[in-house]
Write a protein that binds this DNA or RNA. Structure first.
Lengths: 414, 414
DNA sequence: CCCATATGTTTGGCCCCGCAACAAATAGGC
DNA sequence: GCCTATTTGTTGCGGGGCCAAACATATGGG
């Protein structure tokens, strides 16, 4: 904050511009490809009906996408009723392939994913929680990535790279301001990853929770739910927000740092320097504290320890989980009041803990949320589990192709 | 919240559809009209440059809008340099006029506003804070509105009604779930206002803070700043959020109920039933408490009393304001972490108090906000003052015309 | 008074989509 | 097995909307 004159995005500069016919075409190509990418193989007649365009237009669009190698037509499905059968249209996974990367607290992961969500290959490797330099970690990722890229089908074209980091990340250039749980600050992850991989393709870096939200919205429990929040519980808590079907990123991409909202002025000191942040009450550390996990064990395998004890019916563990659940619920209630979502998805830590947490979370959320938004909101465990952020990284990179399917062609031609 | 199956907006149903050519035209007409509405008279050549469309297209678009009576061309401005002078294009205020209504805690207000933001007339009348029935208040508003509507120029066409309510409002039909500070709950304000006014035009009802945000984004301190939050401090605290240039409303329009987020578990009981809501620490009641305003006075003219004492240098009052400012700042820090805005605008109570609050607000916000989003955010007092929500109501109603300028024409023809 | 300059105006063409007529492929009835 | 109804792909034509270029117009400066 500062008191200077307000200069941010003043006036006429970046107001919406007019739009010409080619933009229309791009939009329709993108919409068609997105549907196929998300909803899977669809008949031409279905596409005609759901997209609201003319048969001939749909045919033409499909023809163009097929020419770009992004989709293909197959035989019609076993017919239902009279009439000429309509061929199924499906994405070609090797028409556009991306590399997905995840820098998480306890592990790094890499995957190659094609259009339609086909996973060609995927590797996850532990990462010691002790402070590991960004450079080392990025080298580790590159080492994992190389064989995956090489084993792609020969005709597959790698069109981009997406990466998720558990930290405050600037979207425009992939600069990571602060990732306390990785022990990083001020790391140009986008640049470094790009250099280390030695690929021409652009590297998009985003916050892990934002990617979790994207993945759950596209292929998880929240598929097609336009207003949802994904909560990533690792060491801290991050929130990814989908609003009206679009990621809500804020001015620079920092939005969703809900873990560092004040919920208890008399609470514990947080890694961020403040006191009483939500994650000090509902994060991993709080879990260890409430569940009676000794400090010597804490940080290594808190989740595993707690899960084991809970499974055995350990009262202290169960009560501790419930206490974390209560605080989690209170914070969720806050988010419900502020965002009015239809769905809150619990990922990371909270995914395996969900059965134990559930009741307390509902109780806490009900307490904090107002009736009107509370009645709209549902709470669910992640549908994609630990791989949600990784799949979100893939979706992020694939979005570039989907948004402008003819771009590659054009740049080749030009 | 509930545990039922997730049904919200599932899958294929309301995914984006394809778009035909007429949608293109509508978009360009809307973009052009919006620019003129917001930025005022502009030369055709400027429009050509900034909209990125061809001269001939701009001419055609302006011709159509002129035919609809929404814009007109005037003489060129005193020329600057050689070349044929370009005529100025401006909106015609009587081409589209709306009625704006505000139901605030201590007053109701009504205005007639034309395209371009021209205010034809405006009245504000006190409203006793004692529980007044919705019916009475709506009758009061209708009584104020009638002479304003009748005194509009004879050729002005009233195209819509916008209303702001200090409560939790469903956007789709203007149903007010809860307006604790008005003493209302479950009031179909949209319906009632429509019936009482006896107009054919649609009535749009929205939350007061959302309208304040819209107004400040369009014509206030935040003009053109695409990521901003407006805080409306009346009896409670409401937040209106503009994200990427668009109002962020949530699934049903309830978003922004930041006043009822938990910030202090050991705090005071809130009107909403919970304990430790932000507005119990930074709202009007807290102001009275901290500034030492006796309960007998409180509720009648807290703001006036505090302002008078502060102006006189009363230490208790100043310290009380600072304490409110600190809590206000802490909550703002929370919002900054969650939304990553460029600007936080303080309206309502906080507008006159701003000079006294400012320092404490910055300190509190700096404490709670993370560095990265904190560096992006600025804080400012409302530029429109007490009329921000009323002007927002006008903008809301005018948006309908702007979004589809040819609609009236078409419905008349059809 | 003429020229350079900038901009409105007009005309033709292209892109993109819709429409309608036709062709093709299936199910069901006889 | 053939015929018909039905659905959908295919093709050709037309219109809406934008752009580009040529031309017309209005200004400032020499």
């Amino acid at each position: 904050m500062n008191r200077t004159q307000i200069t941010a995005g003043r006036d006429a500069q970046n107001r919406p511009r007019g739009v010409a016919a080619e933009e229309l075409r791009r939009h329709n190509l993108a919409t068609l490809l997105e549907r196929l990418h998300l909803l899977g193989p669809t008949s031409r007649s279905d596409l005609t009906a759901t997209m609201g365009l003319n048969r001939s237009t749909i045919a033409d669009l499909i023809g163009e996408l097929a020419g770009l190698g992004l989709v293909e037509e197959g035989p019609a499905q076993a017919s239902s009723g009279p009439g000429r059968p309509s061929p199924m249209v499906r994405t070609r996974p090797d028409g556009a392939t991306v590399l997905a990367v995840e820098f998480s607290v306890d592990s790094v992961a890499v995957a190659t994913v094609g259009l339609g969500g086909h996973v060609f290959g995927q590797v996850r490797e532990p990462r010691p929680r002790a402070r590991v330099s960004p450079d080392e970690t990025i080298k580790q990722v590159a080492r994992l990535a190389r064989p995956l890229i090489e084993s792609l089908p020969s005709d597959a074209s790698l069109t981009g790279v997406g990466a998720g980091v558990a930290g405050v990340t600037r979207r425009s250039d992939g600069f990571v301001h602060l990732a306390p749980n990785l022990g990083w600050h001020s790391v140009p992850v986008g640049e470094m990853l790009s250099a280390e991989l030695g690929l021409d393709q652009p590297v998009l870096v985003a916050n892990e929770a934002d990617l979790g939200a994207l993945a759950e919205y596209r292929r998880g429990v929240g598929a097609g739910v336009p207003h949802l929040i994904y909560l990533s519980g690792e060491a801290g808590i991050g929130a990814g927000i989908i609003h009206d079907g679009k990621p809500m990123l804020g001015a620079a991409g920092y939005a969703g740092e809900a873990g560092h909202t004040l919920v208890n002025p008399d609470g514990h000191r947080c890694r961020c320097g403040a006191r009483g942040c939500w994650e000090t009450e509902a994060g991993e550390e709080a879990l260890a504290r409430h569940a009676g996990i000794p400090e010597t064990v804490a940080g290594v395998g808190v989740l595993e320890t707690v899960m084991t004890r809970a499974d055995m019916g350990d009262e202290t563990a169960l009560a501790g989980i419930a206490e974390v659940g209560r605080w989690l619920g209170l914070g969720i209630g806050n988010l419900i009041n502020v965002f009015n979502p239809q769905l809150v998805v619990l990922g990371g830590l909270y995914h395996p803990l969900f059965p134990f947490l559930e009741k307390a979370v509902y109780a806490g959320a009900r307490l904090a949320a107002l009736d009107a938004p509370g009645d709209v909101a549902e709470i669910a465990a992640s549908g994609l589990g630990p791989d949600a952020p990784l799949m979100g990284a893939a979706e992020l990179a694939l979005s570039e192709i989907i948004a402008d399917p003819a771009r590659n062609q054009r740049t080749q031609a030009g």
